[in-house]
């Protein structure tokens, strides 16, 4: 089992004929992802690696069933591509675009919330249910990072995810589904919104979150644990514990949260809710072993 996507999920790719889109679509397919069609306006009738291309999502949906869309679309076109997918009834969307304008991120997330859909990203490398399916640009072939197991992983970063996941695998664990929610100030989907899916997945025995300073996503995870929405073991690692104040942190996060946003505050919230917090990546497997013996 896995969450969000598995080998049965019917996936479409918007922006399939671009250089990046074509390259990573082939990788997604090679790993087992069930890609049913691609979309590039003006290129209907072509195919990419045997995948038929349509002018629009609606035109493709007439011939094929699909519930997931992967976007290989530049930042300024993401809003339109998300709205197009939602309009055609797609319920799960992933965008890796780095540079989506903030106000468009607000509209994208709001539109998805309004119709009960989920958008993962932007500014992420995507998500992977190991051995089943992948969306985005995840190098599933690096075995010391992407190994099948029983731990769900949620992350806000890219390189740091490789670092921490390599430690998880090195400690004898493996991963069910890894989801990069992305590093933007308004990600399409927040950590806490994925927890019910990990809770319901019998194969996921625990979850690791890779967070960082700023925002309130880690505190929302603590709230979900306090409210018993998530009851499995949880280990967090967060970057920015020693970051000098005022150098990177914004203003708005601190306003809406009344002092929330520091790694110190996030650590206290997660520990109070029964989670464990690693001070460095190598402590993550140690803390998982404390839970699982």
């Amino acid at each position: 089992m896995s969450i969000f996507i598995n080998k049965e999920s019917k996936v479409i790719v918007q922006g399939v004929t671009g250089k990046e889109g074509a390259f990573w679509t082939q990788h997604m397919k090679a790993m087992g992802t069930n890609v049913v069609f691609g979309v590039t306006p003006g290129k209907e009738g072509q195919n990419v690696d045997g995948i038929p291309v349509y002018h629009s999502v609606r035109r493709g949906i007439q011939d094929h069933q699909a519930e997931v869309s992967m976007l290989f679309v530049p930042p300024k076109f993401v809003k339109d591509a998300v709205f197009e997918a939602l309009d055609a009834g797609i319920t799960k969307i992933c965008t890796i675009a780095d540079g989506i304008p903030l106000h468009e991120s607000l509209e994208i997330r709001k539109a998805a919330l309004s119709c009960g859909a989920m958008v993962i990203g932007g500014n992420t490398s995507g998500l992977i249910s190991i051995g089943e399916a992948m969306l985005g640009t995840i190098p599933y072939w690096i075995e010391r990072v992407y190994k099948k197991g029983n731990i769900g992983v949620m992350t806000r970063s890219g390189s740091l995810t490789n670092e921490v996941t390599a430690e998880i695998v090195g400690g004898g664990f493996g991963v069910t589904t890894l989801i990069g929610v992305g590093g933007d100030p308004v990600p399409g989907t927040r950590f806490a919104e994925l927890l019910p899916m990990y809770e319901a997945d019998p194969e996921t025995k625990g979850v690791v979150i890779i967070g960082e300073l700023g925002g309130t996503m880690e505190e929302e995870v603590a709230d979900a644990m306090e409210d018993k929405i998530f009851t499995k073991p949880l280990v967090a690692f967060m970057g920015g514990r020693n970051a000098p104040e005022g150098k990177r942190m914004g203003h708005a996060g601190a306003i809406v949260s009344g002092g929330r946003g520091t790694v110190k505050g996030k650590t206290a919230a997660i520990e109070k809710a029964g989670g464990k917090v690693a001070k460095r990546p190598s402590e993550v497997p140690t803390l998982l072993h404390e839970f699982f013996g």
């Binding site: 970063s157 740091l160 995810t161 670092e163 300073l213 920015g240 020693n242």
Partner: peptide, 10 residues
């Protein structure tokens, strides 16, 4: 990577 660089700083 912002996350990894921040972690190295820590």
């Amino acid at each position: 990577g912002a996350g990894l660089t921040t972690t190295v700083y820590d």
